[in-house]
Simulated assay, not measured.
Amino acid sequence: MPSHHDAGSLYSSHHGWLHNWLWRKIGCRDGAADIAHDTFVRVLDAGALGVLREPRAYLSTIASGLLVNHWRRLTLERAYLEALAQQDQAVAASPEERALVIEALMQVDAMLNQLSPKAREAFLLSQLDGLTYAAIATRLQVSERMVKKYMAQAMLQCLLIANG
C-alpha cells in the first residue's frame, strides 16, 4: 500500500510538468488541470506508486489515454450539437438533457471500442442501417452464423453498460 508521502512526493515532483505537457497538447489550462488530476487519481487507484521506475513515462501514458477520451468526447459532443442545430427549436434539449445524451453517447462509443472491427461494423449495420443478418454477412464476407456471434458480443456489451 503506497504511503501518503509517496503520493505527495510524486504529485509535487511531477504535477507541474504533467500540467504543462497537457496544456501544450490541448491548449486549455483548465482542461489540462482536470486531466492531470484524473491522471493522479488513476495512479493512486492502480496502487503502483511503490514500483514506479519511470514516473513521467507512466504518467504520460495514463494522461495520453485520458486525452484520447477527452478528444473523443469533444468529437461526440460537436456531432451531437451539430445534429441539434438541425432540429426544430421547439424540440431543443435542455442543458441537462444534452449532458445525459452526451454521456450515453460516450458509453456507446466505449462499448463499440470493446468490439472487434467486424463485430462493431455488424452491430452498426444492423442498428443504424437496418440490414438483415444475411445482408450483413454478405457485406462483411462472413457467414450468417458469424454475424449472430458478432451481434451476441455487441448485445452483451450493451447489457454490461445498462447494468453497470
Rank of each mutant, 00 (worst) to 15 (best):
A7G: 08
G8P: 11
G8A: 08
Y11I: 04
S13P: 07
L18Y: 00
L18V: 11
L22K: 05
L22V: 10
L22M: 03
W23A: 13
K25M: 06
K25D: 10
K25Q: 15
I26S: 04
G27H: 05
D30L: 13
D30M: 08
A32I: 04
A32Q: 04
A33M: 09
D34F: 03
D34N: 12
H37N: 11
D38E: 10
T39W: 00
F40D: 11
F40K: 07
F40E: 08
F40M: 05
V43E: 02
V43I: 15
L44M: 10
D45V: 14
A46H: 14
A46D: 12
V51D: 10
V51C: 10
L52N: 02
E54F: 15
A57H: 14
Y58M: 07
L59H: 05
L59E: 03
S60G: 06
S60Y: 01
T61G: 10
A63I: 08
S64A: 15
L66H: 09
L67Y: 02
N69L: 09
W71E: 11
R72Y: 03
L74R: 15
L76R: 08
L81E: 04
E82S: 13
A83I: 04
A83D: 15
L84P: 08
A85T: 11
Q86C: 10
Q86G: 07
Q86W: 03
Q86E: 15
Q87P: 07
D88R: 15
Q89C: 09
V91S: 06
A93C: 13
S94C: 12
E96N: 09
L100V: 09
L100K: 14
I102Q: 01
I102R: 00
E103C: 05
Q107A: 14
V108H: 01
V108M: 02
D109M: 09
M111Y: 02
M111K: 06
L112P: 09
L112F: 00
L112W: 00
K118Y: 02
K118I: 01
K118C: 01
A119L: 06
A119N: 07
E121F: 04
E121A: 07
A122T: 02
A122D: 01
F123D: 00
L125Q: 04
L125T: 00
L128K: 05
G130W: 01
L131T: 01
T132E: 08
Y133N: 10
A134E: 09
A135L: 03
A135G: 00
A135M: 03
I136N: 01
A137T: 03
T138Y: 00
R139V: 00
V142A: 02
S143I: 11
S143A: 13
E144M: 13
E144R: 15
R145I: 12
V147Y: 03
K148R: 15
K149R: 13
K149W: 05
Q153A: 13
M155T: 13
C158F: 01
L159W: 03
L159A: 03
L159T: 07
L160H: 07
I161F: 01
I161K: 01
A162E: 06
N163H: 08
N163V: 06
